[in-house]
Structure formats: structure tokens, C-alpha cells
Design a protein around this nucleic acid. Structure first.
Length: 435
RNA sequence: GGAGAGAUGGCUGAGUGGUCGAAAGCGCACGACUCGAAAUCGUGUAUUCCCUCACGGGAAUCGAGGGUUCGAAUCCCUCUCUCUCCGCCA
């Protein structure tokens, strides 16, 4: 949610942002509706003030005067009701549009229509060279009996998988390594619910808009308002519960920034991606993720610093794993509604012969905190909205693609990255047990 | 799943139709007293929205939504949540 006062001052900036982000919203319609709402609101409140005033005087009146006043108020009450009803109708539309107004991208964000126009800002690591014919991760996973996709599909449908044996142990090792690294860097770990309320989904701005990407519990899909019985959604990322952790709270300046790391599964319906990335572990319905979340002072310079920090953390993990990657500035058309700056880390995946997105680092400024109502008491005693940021630290199973493919050996085994060995009892290699 | 109790400001807790946005206490802030502190005394202490350059004014909010009424924290209906006990369960 954006600052409406700011919006009214410079609607063109938001018109421009909507255009660049490819957000379909009629800014002029909203301006008109907003004005209509304010006029009507004023009229209704004036009537209400009159009614309140007279009603307060009624008990002191007697006889004729009293009867007249009551009759007049009865009439006023009817008028008021009509006005209130119209106001309510307008506010439904107003509120719906308001939630779709975009955050304004920072100046450094490149303009572009989609992910093909993201801009590479740096590269790290050397691309692997194989002296043998390398296998892809699906083949490796099957041959080593550590990734069972057919049985995953049997049990839970398409885009499902089962990590098995050393594959399962490797996954956990990756997360433990990342969690340890963030622990050492001052992050507090939260293992949150993977179920979230409508408010949490809305507050983090997954809703409205992303309803069809979320699995809903006990409710039908495609809805814009909370309904019974459960009103719970499977989260796509720990960002949702962790960012919502302090919703409705006023934090002390001295306790900022809050550095949290959420560890959870995430669930995505992947609606509308039929036929896309169907093979292997790239695009699946359930992921496991170590997610960094920051709440900091509502100051662009501070959040920029935090953005760099969490991006560096993720890069540190990739470098420790010795996986070649690049960092891109995500262009306007590929950003979310509320994001003002976003970097992706893309990791080299031999089977794709290219870089594939493995991390996403986003700065929201006060877009989420306005919806979630997370404030802090500033140095001058006023209450301001915090800035929120989040970034993947590591996510599986997608990162297993580069790990398996890059660390494979000519004999079909996979070397365990050195930094992960302590988390696998010192194991150095994953070999085929049945061969 | 069964039975019961409850939801009021930062907290505790009064308040069953008319200056109640809300007593009182605690907490907190400021001031007085003090060398300083404690104690004591005094003053102040919710959020959101609208109008205004500002001073200030208005509206809404006592779990949520609806209703009755000139007027609702108080009456009626629906829902949600919390707590206790029993059952079931990782």
C-alpha cells in the first residue's frame, strides 16, 4: 500500500510507475473516485456531526421542542443512511484500487518488459568444464537414487519429487549450513507456520493478485475476501509469516534493524506455467527455503544498506558452495507491485546451459509495513512505518540442480561441497549404492 | 467434538440507554520538592480518517459485522477469537 497523501501530490509519478511495471490500473479513475469519496465523506460527516450535536441536546429539551428535534433527527438519520450506503459502495471500489497502486521503483531500476530485460551487474565464479559427457540433475538423481521424481508424481501429482537417502541429507545440510552462517551474522531464526491468514497474505502483498498461486485450506480458490471455514493459505515463502511477525506493532528504534531468518517449506500452485520447466526440480509445487527478512528504519539510505547486506549474505553462501552465479538488476516489468528495488541471483545450471534464478532480493520501503501496520518510534517521537526487505539465502530443491550437475564426476558420483560435509557426518561423495 | 466463561485504552479493571473516548489504579512523560535519588504532590498520557499553512475543528473506533433508537460500551442478531474443564490426537 502506498502513501495516499503522496499519491495525491504527484499522481504522475505513480502513473509512470504503473506503466513501467506493466501494472494495469486506471490512475485517473482512481483519482476521480478518491475525490468523490472525499466529498461524500465530508458530507456524511457533517450530517453526522449535526445529528450528534442535537442528540446530545435532546435530554435537556422538553415537550414540543423535544418532539420536533427527534422528528428532525429521524429525517436526518434517513438522509445519513443513504449517504453512508453510497459511501460504502464507493469505498469498496476505492479500497480495491488502492491495493493495486504500485510502489515507485528506485532510480537505478532498469526499465523493461519482462525477465529478458533484467540487467546483469556482476558475475562470480568460473563456468565448469567437463572432460566427460555430463548428466543432467534428473539423470544424476535417478542413477544415484537420491531424487525420485516418478514416485513423487505418483504420490502428489505433477511437479512433485521425493528426495531420498543422501539427497535428503544433502538438502538438510544445505539449509543447516545457510542457517549457521546467518546465525553467525546476527540473524534470529524463526520456524514459522506454513499456513497463513488472509491478512498476512494481503499484508505482504501476495493478495490481491496472487490468489491463484496459493493453495487454500478449506476454501475455494479465486476470492478476494476472507470466508469460512478456515481462511488459511499455504505460504509460498516464509517471507509471509516472518514479515507479518510484527504486524500491528510499534517497535523501538533501538531494536532496529530486526534481522530474521525464516526456515520453512513453501507451496506454489504454479498456475499458468503448464508446459514450462516441466522437467526436473526447477519448477515444483513445494520448496524448502532459508529466507532472510529485515525490518529497518523507514529511511531509504538505511534500507539500501540492508539490501546490500542480505544480498551479500546470499552471495557468501553461493561462494562458499563454489557455484558460479551472476547478480541482475530486475527490470520494472519483472518486479512485483510493491517492490521498489530487486536483485535476482542466477546460478549456472549446466543442463540449461545458462543461468537460472535461485534467489530474489527485494526492498519494499513502506509498502508492506503500511499494509501490515508495522511502525517504529522515530528519534523525534513520531511513529513511522518501517522498511521491509527480504532475500532468499538458499532454496531447495532448485539449488540442487547446479550442485548435482557441477559437482558430478566422470564415474557418476557427486562430490559433496566441502562446506556441507560437516553437516553430513564428514561424507565426501554421493555414490551409487546399487551399482 | 461436548460444556462453560470471557473479549473495554500500554496494563489491571469499573461501567447495563443520554456531556462515556470512557472512572479508578498501575505504568509512562514532564514539572515541583531534593545535593541527587526514593517517596510525595501537580500536569499530561490511544489510534485512524477528513478539513486547515497553522491555531484549531469534525468523524470513527469499548473483539468484528449487522439491527433497534433522536441517542448504544450498554438492548437484539450473526460471526470471530481467547481461556477453563472433558474427549480425541502428534
Amino acid at each position: 500500500m502506498i502513501d495516499l497523501a503522496d499519491f495525491r501530490k504527484r499522481p504522475d509519478a505513480y502513473r509512470d510507475a504503473a506503466k513501467k511495471k506493466r501494472v494495469k490500473i486506471d490512475i485517473d479513475a482512481f483519482l476521480k473516485l478518491d475525490e468523490e469519496r472525499r466529498v461524500l465523506l465530508h458530507a456524511v460527516e457533517t450530517k453526522r456531526a449535526e445529528k450528534n450535536k442535537v442528540s446530545a441536546e435532546v435530554p435537556k429539551m422538553k415537550g414540543d421542542d423535544k418532539a420536533k428535534a427527534v422528528a428532525a433527527m429521524k429525517e436526518l438519520g434517513a438522509e445519513l443512511k443513504a449517504g453512508e450506503e453510497r459511501l460504502k459502495e464507493i469505498e469498496v471500489l476505492w479500497n480495491d484500487l488502492q491495493l493495486r497502486l504500485p510502489g515507485i521503483p528506485l532510480p537505478q531500476v532498469p526499465e523493461g518488459k519482462d525477465d529478458t530485460e533484467n540487467k546483469e551487474i556482476r558475475k562470480w565464479g568460473d563456468l565448469p568444464k567437463f572432460a566427460f559427457e555430463p548428466k543432467d540433475h534428473v539423470t544424476l538423481g535417478a542413477d544415484l537414487d537420491i531424487v525420485d521424481i516418478p514416485r513423487g508424481v505418483k504420490v502428489a501429482g505433477s511437479r512433485s519429487y521425493i528426495l531420498k537417502g543422501d539427497g535428503a541429507r544433502l538438502e538438510l545440510a544445505i539449509h543447516l549450513f545457510a542457517l549457521d552462517l546467518l546465525h553467525k551474522r546476527g540473524f534470529t531464526q524463526l520456524n514459522p507456520p506454513v499456513l497463513a491468514s488472509y491478512d498476512a497474505m494481503m499484508g505482504t502483498s501476495y493478495f490481491p493478485g496472487g490468489e491463484e498461486q496459493a493453495y487454500a485450506v478449506g476454501v475455494q480458490q479465486k476470492r478476494t475476501e476472507p470466508i469460512t471455514p478456515d481462511d488459511l493459505y499455504l505460504i509460498g515463502t516464509a517471507e509471509v509469516p516472518v514479515t507479518s511477525y510484527h504486524s500491528g506493532e510499534v517497535l523501538k528504534l533501538s531494536e532496529l534493524p530486526k534481522r530474521y531468518v525464516g526456515f520453512s517449506s513453501g507451496f506454489r500452485r504454479e498456475a499458468g506455467t503448464y508446459g514450462k520447466d516441466t522437467k526436473g526440480l526447477y519448477r515444483v509445487h513445494q520448496i524448502q527455503k532459508v529466507e532472510q527478512v529485515i525490518l529497518c528504519e523507514g529511511d531509504a539510505a538505511v534500507s539500501a544498506k540492508m539490501h546490500a547486506e542480505i544480498l551479500a549474505n546470499a552471495e557468501a553462501v553461493m561462494q562458499a558452495l563454489k557455484l558460479p552465479y551472476r547478480v541482475v538488476d530486475v527490470c520494472t516489468g519483472d518486479m512485483g507491485l510493491g517492490q521498489v528495488y530487486k536483485n535476482d541471483i542466477e546460478t549456472w545450471m549446466p543442463s540449461r546451459n545458462g543461468y537460472g534464478e535461485t534467489h530474489s532480493c527485494s526492498t519494499f520501503h513502506d509498502f508492506q509495513s503500511r499494509r501490515l501496520n508495522i511502525k517504529y518510534e522515530a528519534a523525534d517521537g513520531t511513529k513511522k512505518f518501517v522498511h521491509t526487505l527480504n532475500n532468499t539465502c538458499i532454496a531447495t530443491p532448485r539449488v540442487l540442480i547446479p550442485i548435482l550437475e557441477i559437482y558430478q564426476n566422470a564415474d557418476g558420483s557427486v562430490t559433496v561441497p566441502e562446506v556441507l560435509r560437516p553437516y553430513m557426518g564428514g561424507q565426501e561423495k554421493i555414490v551409487c549404492k546399487t551399482a
